[in-house]
Nucleic acid binder design. Structure first.
Lengths: 233, 233, 233, 233
DNA sequence: TATGAATGAGGGTTCATTCAT
DNA sequence: CATGAATGAACCCTCATTCAT
């Protein structure tokens, strides 16, 4: 499991030691995602990583330091916006771009790939934001969301700065995140939902279709979005 | 909400003499929502509730028992499906029903009312389901979702059993939950979003409009939903 | 179980209340004998006695007070020296007197009679003497031991003040107590020992015989006991 | 007794650096013997051993684990059967063997040597047997008792399997244990008994003499022991 | 450098006791 | 008088962290 990510640690030249660090990150990511920061003890992480009990303090100066690094590491490994941009055909119709975006998003989020705990970790940050969330938003989320906004703007036939864009962007994203963030309840409501690849594709198709209908229907009726009530609270 | 225990203390009305049990539930709900089960110590809960350190064990037989009861209590206090049903005009057009549903949902979820920590608590259950989640789904979520499905079916012009209903229901719900579950990131992306009452109404209107467009656009093209890939995993 | 001992509490005339007190003593004696003072919680005692949780503090002013009263109560109920004296035929040969004494002692100690926990309670006092032990020695043990010494003196053919009497008295008593105080180990060494009435009689017979042989053998050779090394420590 | 752990600390010889584990065992043995399992708090043990409050859980996985190890350790340190066997001259008359056995037993039990709390600890196990008692009986008591039985058989002039052997063995042992197990009462009955070395020797002599008389007297009259009433309880 | 024995603050829980009813 | 909800001190134990090796 520690084959693909020595690219950033190769400079020191101590592969065996670096392995410990990376193994620690992998193990910590998994259990932090599963049980949360407070629900995990470093003994378990070290045992899972096959490392010494003092390794966490040695490498990360404590549990919190480890958590911060795990968050960074997770999003370093996550689907980069570049890959997303590459996958999207630049001169295809906007509907098709949206399709690629949504399908890619779903796949990277729900298909149990390498950083399968990324989603859960982020979901935890939503509920209990740590100091690391700011970095995450800046480096990972903002560029992806900018890409989505450009697609949405194209579909709505307006400029990317149009106020409507943010709301329809939210409509797209919300329907994607829903299936990951609410898995436990969804699976209780729909026992036949197993998150197989076919089912994920089916869901993604539905989201694309829904958003397309919504945005096509809204074209030309976007005046309502001009008046946004400034938050005064 | 406090009917079962007030039979012996109801006449005094002293807030300090209000059942220690209830004060503990309120305090615990607040901090459990904020910091999670493991992030909270019962000493804090007791201090907040003005109760003794041993009160939790006396009344709930431990921290876990308290958590279970908090979850029950929270959803007992939450918006009951009855109120929702009452608020919805039975012979209005489906669009209007949807509007009432969504607006009520948003209000009860985001307006900082009494059970303001309900949403967070449920969001935590999503990520780290406890044994209490099954009860919750059965007693609280299923009936509300059934109500939504009936509205969706009406808007799609199909029977409530039609497979498309579940997916469009999800589209509605997902766009509601999004704004609560992802608050921290949303507020970083949209710093002008303060979740004021006007803004909440604005967002709810957008959700209603989007879903309406989507469902109206989908009417008559629901054949795609007939073939659902049975999960084999 | 609370039928035979209202004789001392009948003067107050509150049979129902006194019952609680006595039931508490019975229950406490049982569990104190079984698990020791610290190993028992008053909740258990009250539950066993069918009394309120506050009853112990009400009747005995605390756990320690209860323990003290239990000890008193136990020896009030125990085999009185009078009964023992009555059972011993005054003009029988000394050997027979010893037989009656030992058999009675064994029976009252090992046969699971009413105060079956008396022995265990006293054994606990041996290891961890409480303030109540002095009273016990004075009121219960000393008179019984005096009786035994008179028998031993007769068997040895010396006056009761003769120094040898105390040592042979100890030889008799030690072989009686052994079977009660070391039950757990004895039963592991001799798995066929079930402390049935027949077996107890068999053991008592052995003790009598042994002591008789020893004392008869020692008659006329008791000079050694004249020089007792005064304890200087 | 402290061989397995001293491999890394033996050279320093600092008493303070003596294995924390051993210091804990010593301290725990002392207070467990004095106050019993429930009457002792690990804080006291740790304070007495000069160890940290968490040391018990670290080394023994809890208070119970410590108790179990203390019992093992106590009997590992106690008079081993080997020493006893060495002390007994193989071709001396049986009376002399018995004398060595009893004197050694008394000395190791009552002289305040290193494992002075051994006896008390075992006495407690008698009253409230823990799971560790089985081990103890197997490893420590059985071999010593076998040795005693061989002496008794020789004195009775029968084979070691003869049923009388067990009963006379019990007579010997019971008169030894008596003086340790019933100290508090004995000292109240005999205020001049201070358990000085001279007095212990005096008592041991009495026990040897008594048993010798008894067994010599019983020789040739052992038919009574053939019929042992099978316990049916 | 990496280890693991040792630390100590603080966690949940227990339990004898109290006090208003 | 009897009750049982409530108390708070103290218990055992956990766990992130440290430090000599």
């Amino acid at each position: 499991m520690s084959t693909a990510k020595t690219d950033k640690t190769s400079d020191t030249g101590h592969p065996a030691e670096q392995d410990t660090r990376v193994r620690l990150l992998e193990a910590a990511g998994e259990v932090f995602a599963e049980r949360g920061f407070h629900g995990v003890q470093i003994r378990d992480i070290c045992a899972l990583a096959g490392a010494n009990i003092a390794a966490v303090n040695y490498h990360f100066k404590g549990k919190e330091g480890l958590y911060r690094e795990v968050l960074k590491y997770a999003h370093h490994c996550a689907m980069a916006v570049d890959e997303l941009q590459v996958a999207i055909p630049p001169d295809a119709p906007a509907e098709q771009k949206l399709g690629v975006f949504v399908h890619t998003f779903f796949r990277s989020m729900l298909s149990g790939g390498r950083p399968s705990w990324n989603g859960k970790l982020l979901a935890r940050e939503m509920i209990e934001p740590s100091a690391a969330l700011d970095d995450l938003v800046m480096s990972e989320i903002t560029p992806k969301f900018a890409l989505l906004r450009s697609i949405v703007a194209e579909m709505l036939g307006v400029a990317i700065e149009h106020p409507a864009v943010r709301w329809f962007g939210a409509s797209v994203i919300s329907q994607c995140l829903f299936w990951e963030h609410n898995k436990p309840v969804i699976q209780r409501l729909y026992p036949d939902l197993s998150y197989s690849d076919e089912q994920i594709r089916f869901i993604a198709d539905h989201v694309v279709r829904t958003c397309t209908f919504a945005m096509l229907g809204a074209r030309g009726k976007l005046d309502e979005y001009a008046t946004w009530p400034e938050g005064k609270r």
